[in-house]
Design a protein around this nucleic acid. Structure first.
Length: 641
DNA sequence: AGCTCTTTCA
């Protein structure tokens, strides 16, 4: 009896304490809070112990007792109530549905996390891939249930290689028909004629198909993304009431698996709504795993209030976040720079927690402090810093323009046996490019490759951007070529930047014009967009480089595709054409200007009149002159006989 | 029963 009272008191205290933790509280100093992470152990240990050992019935009795007062002294402490049916179900291990669900999710999970160790990725045509499904008796058991429709994941084999028509639409109101539609669609697009032979813009169907065929994207990756998407579609299509009625979620773990899938698929909204309804309907009692996923949903959305609410809810229910969940929580705070409100915990900080904190410190600009802490971690030797730790601090230094120190940090990391990865190098490149030393970055990238560290998209983009920014055009084009060689796609914006850089340089170095034009043509034939400014600059550069004909073609193309070139661009082309004696082409350009209702100036007319004079076409010169006058422009050149 | 932390430009 006394024990029960005590327990209740503890629960209330714990609850109050949880509410005391304020997210974003500015009162205490940063380092205070930071140190507290490690020293507050005792304060919370009692609570932690309680959380871990608390029997479930305390939790469920708790709200009742609050309103009705303490239990009558004559009654013995309440025994655990007989397990309701859903709790019995909870204990049933390896339920069929769960097993199958896991089987379906596991490969996706592993591929996504990059841990491919012991899971052989099946070839698309590999029949073994089918066997996992067909052998499973559990699948047979659920195959007629409504969930089958929701969780039916089309096998890649069917999607890509089966010539047979898809199964006929089932009478089920759920998503089978939807999938059939997809299957049909994919089958149709893979047998379609190759659209590149026609001049039509590639249709969406084709792009989709080529994505699957593109080896760089990776078949398996795309397939799993497709699977996850279908999975989500299925869940969306399935009304929750239906699920409850049919008792599809018989155990919490089934529900957790679903939550996990939703978290991975980055669909926190669905997960949260599912959680709300499931718990309010009292069909299932959420466990610690459920809460962990719940918190991750909130953190993924940066909903700090939601996270706080979830945390309180969790502790009220007698669960305590484990280090991993905790890391997610700390991280979402640090990402926002909300360092001051770090709450007290009874856990020793792991290196991951430190990493989050260091990142947060860098985010708010306290790089020096971050560095000191890194040194302290190193000296204390309680936790071993990893490459993430160094990367975080390195990134901080880069952001404040202290690249030299970043290089030193990199060396330090290597001294203690850490192998720098792409991310650490990328931070360094960023720093160098920001400081106007892109060439040093380029040199380091050579060193990086020597260390068998493979540059990624960010590496190339950063370097390319830096080189362009600081007008190292020749190096930029080399990096671009390397990038394309390695199968990376260059972003539209960067591409435009590159072409513009090349154009500008071509005014001084004539041989660059050809490179620029090649790139430009590649852009135009591909489906990446071209800025109006890039277009104009290209045309002007072509004029300056005595390639007037190509300039004219580009100008016509530009007008045809709906761009509105600057007047100078027109004038440049007119000027260029006249210099080469191609006065009729110049007249064509002039008429394009007239037709479009564009403003013309003396500069538009002067070269034409001059050239017509030179060629002795007095009448022509006169008509151009009068056309100009009609538009309120008085040319400097006068028709001469 | 699950799993955590690091990166570019615009």
């Amino acid at each position: 009896m006394e024990e029960a009272k005590k327990a209740i008191k503890e629960v209330v205290e714990a609850k109050n304490q949880v509410q005391m933790w304020k997210f974003g509280d500015d009162k205490s100093s940063l380092l205070d809070q930071f140190e507290r992470l490690s020293v507050d152990l005792q304060l919370n240990q009692a609570m932690l112990r309680r959380s871990l050992s608390e029997p479930m019935y305390i939790r469920s009795e708790f709200p009742l007792l609050l309103t009705q007062g303490p239990p009558e002294p004559s009654r013995p402490p309440p025994p655990p109530p007989p397990s309701p049916p859903h709790l019995v179900a909870k204990k049933r291990r390896g339920s069929g549905f769960n097993k199958v669900l896991k089987k379906m999710i596991k490969p996706i999970l592993r591929r996504m996390s990059g841990k491919k160790k012991d899971f052989p990725i099946p070839e698309a045509k590999d029949p073994r891939f089918w066997k996992t499904f067909s052998r499973s008796k559990e699948l047979q058991r659920i195959i007629h249930g409504p969930l089958y429709d929701a969780f039916f994941i089309p096998n890649p084999c069917t999607v890509f290689h089966s010539p047979s028509p898809p199964p006929p639409p089932s009478p089920s109101p759920f998503s089978r028909t939807q999938y059939s539609g997809k299957l049909l669609f994919l089958a149709a697009s893979s047998s379609a004629t190759n659209p590149t032979t026609t001049h039509q813009k590639p249709s969406k169907d084709y792009i989709l198909q080529s994505e699957f065929e593109n080896p760089n994207l990776g078949f398996d990756d795309t397939a799993s993304r497709l699977q996850v998407q279908n999975f989500i579609d299925g869940i969306k299509a399935l009304p929750l009431k239906k699920k409850e009625k049919d008792g599809c979620f018989q155990t919490v773990s089934e529900f957790n698996s679903l939550l996990m899938a939703l978290v991975i698929a980055e669909e926190p909204d669905i997960a949260l709504s599912l959680f709300d309804e499931i718990s309010s309907a009292h069909w299932l009692v959420p466990d610690s795993v459920t809460f962990s996923f719940l918190l991750r949903c909130y953190c993924g959305e940066y909903d700090l209030d939601g996270a706080r609410g979830g945390l309180i809810h969790m502790v009220e229910n007698g669960f305590y976040p484990d280090p991993a969940t905790f890391t997610v929580l700390v991280n979402s705070l640090c990402k926002r720079g909300k360092l001051r409100g770090l709450w007290r915990v009874g856990l020793k900080p792991t290196i991951q927690i430190y990493n989050c904190l260091l990142k947060g410190l860098c985010y708010v600009g306290r790089v020096e402090v971050a560095y000191d802490i890194l040194m302290r971690i190193k000296k204390k030797n309680e936790v071993k810093p990893d490459i993430y730790t160094f990367s975080a601090v390195m990134d901080g230094f880069c952001k404040v323009g202290r690249s030299d120190e970043v290089m030193e940090l990199l060396d330090e990391a290597m001294e203690i046996g850490l192998i720098p990865d792409v991310v650490s190098f990328n931070a360094l490149f960023h720093g160098y490019c920001k400081e106007g030393r892109p060439m040093e970055g380029l040199n380091v990238s050579k060193k990086m490759k020597e260390m068998n560290c493979i540059p990624d998209c960010i590496t190339y983009s950063s370097l390319l951007h830096g080189l362009l920014k600081w007008r190292k055009i020749r190096n930029a084009i080399r990096v671009y070529e390397e990038m394309v060689e390695n199968g990376f796609e260059v972003e539209e914006r960067l591409m435009n930047n590159l072409v513009r850089g090349l154009c500008r340089r071509s005014w001084k170095e004539k041989n660059i014009l050809e490179d620029a034009h090649q790139l430009f043509k590649r852009m135009r034939s591909g489906h990446s967009g071209i800025d109006a400014s890039t277009y104009g600059l290209m045309i002007q550069s072509l004029c300056m480089g005595k390639k007037v004909d190509e300039a004219l073609v580009s100008l016509q193309g530009m007008v045809r595709t709906g761009y509105s070139p600057w007047i100078v661009t027109f004038n440049n082309v007119i000027q260029g054409l006249c210099v080469e004696g191609k006065v009729f082409d110049a007249l064509l350009v002039l008429s394009i200007m007239y037709e479009g209702g564009r403003a013309t100036s003396r500069v538009s007319h002067n070269p034409v009149i001059h050239e017509l004079n030179r060629q002795g076409t007095f009448l022509g010169a006169c008509s151009v002159y009068s056309a100009a006058l009609k538009r309120g422009v008085i040319p400097n050149k006068i028709p001469k006989q």
